[in-house]
């Protein structure tokens, strides 16, 4: 763990991964779009609207995966005080907010023609909306303090506390009566989705995952430079008048 917490080593690792993850995400999303829009059948009940699934479901998965990443790195930051873990959490929340937003709006666009409503306050939709607010709260809290380390700590606690929402989102459709249907793809048993529709779904999901990795690495790199900037400015403010004569 400590090996990756070293920013210089992380930057080298990031530069090695970035070309691959970005190329792979472009490739997978392009293939996913081809199958999603041109080479997959309409649904026997839902007709062409089923194509909305290929952006809605992957964005929902990524919204939750991103939150798990954020909560995990927040725990690492709180317990082991790795400086990099705070930066990962800070870099992750805008990405998660974007995926959650995409999930909510695409779901709304799917719900209107099929269910007959843009929105319903059922357990699945409501818990997903809470996830969106958790992301926004995290982004706001992290910048709410003059001292960045205090902001990071408060945001990490919020991220950990909000993690209880993740199993609620996942199991809401099993625990309560909801308008939203249960999961089609689960670990146990055959997915109740035709292979011709599963293919674009999985391609898009993998493409989104690679895209998430790519953007996360870019944002963490940005945060590392930003903290470097802060450090230099601090030394300039505090050390320059005293340190210059000593150094020369």
């Amino acid at each position: 763990m400590h090996r990756f917490a070293n920013p210089a080593r992380f930057l080298r690792l990031a530069s090695a991964i970035l070309p691959w993850s970005s190329a792979l995400s472009a490739l997978l999303i392009a293939a996913g779009l081809y199958f999603a829009l041109f080479h997959s059948p309409a649904d026997y009940q839902q007709g062409e609207t089923v194509r909305i699934m290929y952006v809605h479901v992957p964005s929902a998965w990524l919204a939750m995966a991103c939150y798990s990443t954020m909560a995990l790195s927040s725990a690492v930051a709180l317990i082991w005080k790795h400086p990099l873990a705070d930066l990962v959490a800070k870099a992750a929340s805008p990405i998660g907010a974007a995926f959650t937003f995409l999930c909510l709006v695409s779901g709304s666009l799917w719900g209107r023609p099929m269910w007959g409503t843009w929105w319903a306050w059922d357990a699945r939709l409501t818990s997903m909306l809470i996830l969106f607010f958790l992301y926004l709260g995290h982004m706001a809290l992290i910048n709410a303090f003059d001292d960045p380390s205090r902001g990071a700590k408060a945001a990490a606690i919020l991220a950990l506390a909000g993690f209880v929402n993740i199993p609620i989102i996942k199991f809401s459709v099993d625990w309560w009566n909801t308008l939203h249907q249960p999961a089609s793809v689960s670990k146990f048993g055959m997915p109740s989705i035709d292979p011709a529709m599963l293919l674009p779904l999985l391609l898009m999901a993998l493409g989104f995952t690679c895209f998430f990795v790519t953007v996360l690495l870019i944002r963490v790199r940005t945060e590392i430079i930003a903290s470097k900037l802060r450090a230099i400015r601090m030394t300039q403010i505090h050390a320059v008048p005293v340190a210059v004569p000593v150094a020369e």
Binding site: R51, S106, L109
Partner: peptide, 17 residues
């Protein structure tokens, strides 16, 4: 319904990048 969903996806993904 279908095209706005894909348009928004392109906007969100492209905008984030």
């Amino acid at each position: 319904f279908v095209w706005p969903a894909y348009g928004l996806a392109a906007l969100v993904v492209g905008g984030l990048l």
